[in-house]
Design a protein around this nucleic acid. Structure first.
Lengths: 160, 160
DNA sequence: CTTATATCAGGTACACTGATATTC
DNA sequence: CGAATATCAGTGAACCTGATATAA
């Protein structure tokens, strides 16, 4: 534990630095994500999960029995990368992999009881950080923000 | 080189998956950032820079002669991490470090000619990806998005 | 044969904590 | 002494490309 306040938050003030509020929107997206990520990671320290691990457990709760390949697609990662994350989660006894006897090589991945408990506690720990994203946001602005985020996330990766 | 189109873009369709458009806004922020990051990294492949490296070079252009500690604060990273990134950039001859003889241990970091050129080419390569963020966005919506991003980036890291 | 899945092997850039030396 | 800077050492989770084996 550090002091009690912020960790390393020397954001350039709005009047100086990387042009503050008026900066490139890509820079703003980067910084917003970085700060939110820090808040999430800090919250997850209480349960020992990394952000990708939390993400995978959340996906497994939504898609019980998903395969590594499916999780990789959902996370925009390669199967190899997902394999490492899944291995780490398995080593921590938070998930289990059962070979799908009938359908070949596919490994059915599921949450263990411990994984379910850790996920529940992690969701609670993360709740405040997520709530902060929507605090003091009008429904019109929230709509605009949501539409923009979806648009950005839906843009082709290689449009040119 | 893959095919020619998108890399790994199997986003769950808007009607299925992680609740698509209606998902947690934190999830949307993550996905939007991930896709934008992929687009940026893809664009930067032409110049061989990683995203943190591009970020550091951009900062150095804005803050000529910054120190490693200053860059770390601007990037929300630890000095050790920044030291690694700076070392990699120095190894690539894109920056130079000169000991600040008068003021102790501080290392003055600056772009080399090659670094300046690479930065210029990288900015051009990245231009389309950044422009995509603002395409078809009304000025009201852009304002809402900008305000939201700044607010998120300004939130205390450890509010509770 | 083609496709999808899983995994091994190797490599790299990030990012952390901890410790140390230096300098103001 | 304390505070800031830089760096070494060690560790680790996340990424990648490439190759391989298996199975639908």
């Amino acid at each position: 534990m550090r002091k009690s306040g912020s960790h390393n938050l020397p954001l350039p003030g709005p009047g100086e630095g990387m042009r503050g509020t008026k900066g490139h929107i890509g820079y703003l997206l980067r910084q917003a994500h970085a700060v939110h990520k820090m808040r999430m990671e800090h919250a997850l320290k209480t349960t020992g999960l990394t952000l990708p691990q939390f993400s995978v457990l959340t996906m497994l709760a939504a898609y019980p029995g998903a395969s590594g390949a499916e999780l990789a697609r959902l996370s925009l990662l390669t199967p190899q990368t997902m394999s490492v994350i899944v291995s780490n989660l398995e080593r921590a006894s938070l998930i289990h992999r059962r070979p799908h006897e009938e359908h070949g090589r596919i490994q059915i991945i599921g949450l263990t009881d411990e994984g379910q408990q850790v996920l529940t506690r992690s969701k609670a720990a993360v709740k405040a950080a997520e709530a902060g994203l929507l605090a003091d946001l009008s429904s019109e602005d929230e709509g605009a923000v949501r539409r923009w985020l979806v648009k950005v996330a839906t843009l082709p990766t290689d449009p040119v």
